[in-house]
Design a protein around this nucleic acid. Structure first.
Lengths: 343, 343
DNA sequence: ATGAAAGCGCTAACAC
DNA sequence: GTGTTAGCGCTTTCAT
């Protein structure tokens, strides 16, 4: 418990608290001589300003927040999140800003969390896992907490936003599958109230002219398996299944194999998110990498600007790359990594 | 920016600030009647106490910290970290405690980070990636910041500690490989100044009676590949390689294959950390799962107790489970998952 | 260029 | 049982 305060420093330097404060912030002219004395005293006492006192006086916390309403288990198996956070941190580190992470369960807890964040714990928030008509958007607007939406949120909103084109890679994969002769192409999506799940599903529906072979999953291996079973039990079963993440894809792949199907010859399979091991599976899994770190960096930069008072703006981070691999190409073996930037 | 303060609530309820404060904290007797009035006013105004003001007055932040001195990229590809954080959060959520995550580069930045955390940003810290003779241990002791060491730190220290037995799974795998007839067993470790890397390496050296086939990697795919190349170029090449994580193991596996070796017949391979896809690789990768979430929960509980003034104590969380799979067993195919609790 | 003093919003002695 | 008041450690007018 560092008991040294600005008063101790002031005393040691033979000046007042105000002078110490200004010597460090540069908020008013200070003679070189006294500044040197102050700096020496600071150094000698190893003083670091109290974050809480500073936050109270300044009305800002030097911290930004991410609130996750997810189940802790889901966080553990998500490959997007850690990379995203890493990207965020790489920007925040420049300005010695901290990241406050809060996991909540239930809407009431989440509201409390945002209220208390807005009340001195954080200067802004990053909103993930956006849902269609997300209640948090108007709520945070009312709280007046600078916020950046991470995801293509289409409703009215007053915030900065990091968009991604989720439709393009889906269309690309459909096109690829069709070239390979597939006609009955299914899609196991994520929960459709997530904006990104919906965007992908809509692109799929648009390409396929219908949702006959669309099934709504929840990103877990269990749902991947169950929905694959359902699809394969159809009178006319699909010959290809596109999954909304790699976890479901692999669960589906295992199930299909257990039913005696050969991948990709009997059933083509693609994932999404491109887990760092997916390229090493056998067959290597076709997937879409999306550079979550780049999105984290962009989001953090936008949020920093917003906090400093910039006008909110929308930025599209186009980093989806389709990796076509063995699991969708009957001529197997070759690890054909056709990378292609989405337009 | 919620402008409502405790004073507004007091006015609305027709009482003073002190009464409001106590009505909520229960720190002194309050008549049911006024408590009801206060609660109603709080509710009506949607008031949430200012974290910064409270932190300043109370000298505690309702937050704990994790400082990572890692490169952001490394965070993104680590399967331990997100699960650990998820475990931590599941405990912190109970007490509405926030987690402050800070990524720093360089020792000076790290010292500043801890100083400022100790100064009102956090009530305690979780120390990961422990190194032999870690400077942070005496440093945090001097700062007086309650801390929990996550890892088997053997030097003198005044903190609570979450230990894991890293040696046992290594011995198990060596034993398994020997039973399969292997004699030249190599180990590609993590950086040896990490206590867990060292513990594993020492167990290996002890089993093998030497470090002839030990190579020090850094957990990246690149180092896995390079050191595998080095080992396979040896006049008498190893017939088995144990890697300190799955990423290096898979990189090594790919390299070995590119040299025409069959896995596991020509070369047996094991990893560590049991990435959630490792069981789905082909051959399925022998690895060690370690339940990072359980360690996160234990660490958070210990830290909470420490902050509340409990005596520091050391707890061993024994959750290492060896998963023997195809990559180490010549009779391939069967996904033999021999799970076995380490003693 | 520097000092003095008034808060920031909350908690907790200290009255009554 | 409730009101008054003095801080917590910093920033920032307002003086000088």
């Amino acid at each position: 418990m560092s008991r040294t305060t600005i008063a101790d420093v002031a005393r040691a330097a033979g000046v007042t608290k105000a002078t110490v404060s200004h010597a460090l912030s540069g908020n008013r002219p200070i003679s070189e001589e006294t500044r040197a004395k102050v700096l020496a005293a600071v150094d000698k006492l190893g003083w670091v300003p109290s974050q809480s006192a500073r936050a109270l006086a300044n009305r800002h916390a030097n911290a930004v927040a991410v609130v996750l309403a997810r189940n802790p288990d889901v966080i553990a198996n998500d490959s997007f999140f850690p990379a995203f956070i890493a990207g965020v941190e790489s920007v925040l580190a420049e300005s010695e800003t901290a990241l406050v992470l809060q996991v909540v369960s239930g809407r009431e807890a989440e509201e409390r969390a945002y209220r208390s964040l807005a009340n001195g714990r954080a200067d802004g928030a990053l909103l993930l896992d956006l849902r269609v008509d997300d209640w948090r958007v108007p709520f945070l607007d009312e709280l007046g907490l600078p916020t950046v939406l991470v995801g293509a949120y289409d409703q009215q909103h007053p915030f900065s936003c990091i968009r991604t084109d989720d439709a393009a890679p889906i269309r690309d994969i459909v096109a690829h599958l069709r070239e390979a002769g597939h006609e009955r192409i299914a899609h196991v999506s994520g929960p459709l109230d997530y904006v990104h799940s919906r965007a992908r599903a809509e692109a799929y529906i648009d390409e396929m002219h219908g949702d006959e072979l669309l099934r709504e999953g929840d990103f877990t291996a269990a749902s991947g398996r169950a929905l694959t079973a359902e699809l394969l039990a159809l009178p006319e079963r699909p010959t290809a299944i596109m999954y909304a993440n790699d976890t479901m894809a692999i669960a589906g792949l295992s199930y299909a194999r257990s039913q005696g199907l050969k991948i990709p010859d009997d059933l083509a399979i693609s994932g999404f998110d491109d887990d760092h091991l997916s390229a090493h599976l056998s067959p290597a899994l076709t997937s879409v990498s999306s550079d979550p770190a780049a999105r984290g960096r962009a989001a953090a930069r936008l949020l920093r600007a917003d906090i400093l008072g910039a006008q909110p703006r929308t930025e599209t981070v186009d980093c989806n790359v389709v990796h076509l691999r063995e699991s969708t190409s009957a001529q197997s073996s070759a690890v054909s990594t056709v990378s292609r930037r989405t337009p």
